[in-house]
Write a protein that binds this DNA or RNA. Structure first.
Lengths: 235, 235
DNA sequence: CGTCTGATTGACCAGGATCAACGGAGGTGG
DNA sequence: CCACCTCCGTTGATCCTGGTCAATCAGACG
């Protein structure tokens, strides 16, 4: 009833189910550009993999019916689900710009998807829009997606360590020291953001200090043992 | 040291700090389109508001230096931080397409931003790219952004209720019943996604059933009292 | 009918929230 | 220049939510 799976009518009616995005992107691109190949439809059954982490990304997929989960495997070998995807959702865009899948996609039930050769899509988009805008959009997608990184982190150590490493990485990208910097936000703000009480943030930082992992002076942080921190972050 | 705040050199050197995005979007657009207005720079001091939730969105902002937090206010009047934004980050894009800010932006320290009149930007982008692609991109941004909705949810009730409401909304958008549907994933998957044990998901659902909030039959869900569920979700 | 997987329920325990007290830094006013 | 105040961070004590382990149960399927 909900997802009229396996209904051949759905497959015939090209992209009629891509409601959420006001029509299927692939076909819109096709209508705009004459040399774009006809998007193909594929059927996956329950427990089928659409793609694996690390694989070369050959296609982008738009879910037409059914549902698909994407997940990564963490340090300990456990699955961490990133998201559930239903009709209209796009799969694989976070594999750009390196064409390497950063997650695994797994069909939870019989699902039909519309697949677009990624190389062709990039060519097409570069005809449509300026390259800098393309890069910007990709970058933006990845940035937003990276918020998900916190959802699975369970305990206080995981969360705070991940937070520190992300702050460190941000400073590195900006050309500043990634081992010694000032946090601009209060313990309260950090706790609020991480879903912890400010006291817990404080305690966790104190423990890291005792372990010789970081040095602390109020909001001034020195990362002493990055490896240890990464271990605490659990990824 | 980290953010050379208030340094007038930074303000003179147009968008030199927008490293992460390989240059400032606003100026790239300006270079592409002759009629696009020169982006303006603004300075905010610690505890200044860049914009408030509900305000009409006049400008997009690109952070050049300093740091800014964005947050929403939940049912109970508490602040829930969505993200911290540093140099290179874009502020306000989630206010599209309705031009109404869905969060408040607050400067944590002295911060300089580059502001772009949003109406002008939209006009410019519509010259650059096909409208359907523009709509698609906006829609995609919002979708990714909406992952953040879970970060603030603290307890099991919050999380599970929010999850159910999102599932309900997804079904509504697809033209299916939003009060009675099948979940395609196991309790294990739900728990993994929400950062809860599967047993906790089960218990929480059972409690909701006892409260007359939902009906349950394995993966088949009937939402009986949406208002109650929204109260549990806490937003 | 037996097996297997997934969901539910119970018992117990630990991690983190809450409440409370304290200390230090910075700001303000006399 | 110093006394005072306020805000923020730290630390301690206690309680409770939710994780873990384990047993049971209900469907699905061969």
């Amino acid at each position: 009833m909900i997802n009229n799976i396996g209904n051949t009518e759905v497959l015939k009616d090209i992209c009629s189910t891509c409601i959420r995005h006001h029509g299927c992107v692939a076909h819109k691109i096709k209508n705009t550009l004459s040399n774009f190949p006809t998007p193909k439809h594929q059927l996956f059954r329950a427990s089928d993999y659409i793609f694996h982490v690390g694989d070369k990304l050959e296609n982008l997929y738009i879910v037409k019916s059914g549902s698909i989960k994407t997940f990564i495997i963490n340090q300990v070998g456990e699955e961490q689900i990133l998201n559930f995807h239903g009709p209209g959702d796009l799969l694989g865009i976070d594999a750009l710009p390196f064409h390497k899948n950063i997650c695994t996609a797994f069909s939870l039930e019989t699902s039909s998807v519309c697949s677009i050769p990624i190389v062709k899509l990039e060519e097409a988009l570069k005809q449509l829009i300026p390259p800098w805008l393309f890069e910007f959009a990709i970058d933006k997608f990845k940035q937003e997606n990276s918020n998900t990184y916190m959802l699975g982190k369970k305990n206080a150590n995981n969360r705070v360590a991940t937070f520190l490493l992300k702050a460190s990485e941000n400073h590195r990208v900006l050309g500043c020291s990634n081992t010694e910097f000032d946090l601009s936000m209060s313990r309260d703000d950090i706790g609020n953001y991480l879903g912890l009480a400010s006291e817990t943030v404080s305690r966790t930082l104190t423990n890291m200090k005792k372990d010789g992992c970081v040095k602390l002076d109020r909001r001034h942080i020195t990362i002493v043992d990055t490896q240890h921190l990464q271990m605490l972050a659990g990824s």
